[in-house]
Amino acid sequence: MIKDWVLEELTVDQKLEPMVKPPITKVQLAQYAGASGDFNPLHLDDDFAKKIGMDGVIAHGMLVMGFLGEYVMKLAGQEARVANLKMRFGKMTVPGDEIRCSGVVERTYEEDGKRCIALELTAEKVSGEVVGSGSAILQLT
């Protein structure tokens, strides 16, 4: 990720360069199921998903949060620790969806002598549909 800023100098309302993930695949959902231990057939079995009224399998909400986690760690780089990460689940994500993660600086403050940066995060489809909105706190060391 190209950074044209340094963490120490981020200011309130500053928009951070987004990260776009490759389209979600069914293989990826199987990988995520195995790695997370969430084998809900809603994420793996099209027939099951159709039986309960979906067009097919949907992605794990936690996979989308994983994308936001990746984004935050990339923003933190080597300079900061992540103290908190939070996400509210929005619209459903399906295979083929490309997710774009973006962030805005919400506020900066000092705590225990450390500089903290609170970020607002959004995960959305290219169509603009929000699939996850959240926040993170970076702590500079």
């Binding site: 990988q31 195995g34 790695a35 997370s36 994983g66 986690g69 990746e70 990339k74």
Partner: peptide
């Protein structure tokens, strides 16, 4: 495996 499923290749 967890990082690979997400596609998170952070060197950390």
């Amino acid at each position: 495996q967890f990082a690979a499923a997400i596609g998170d290749d952070h060197p950390l």
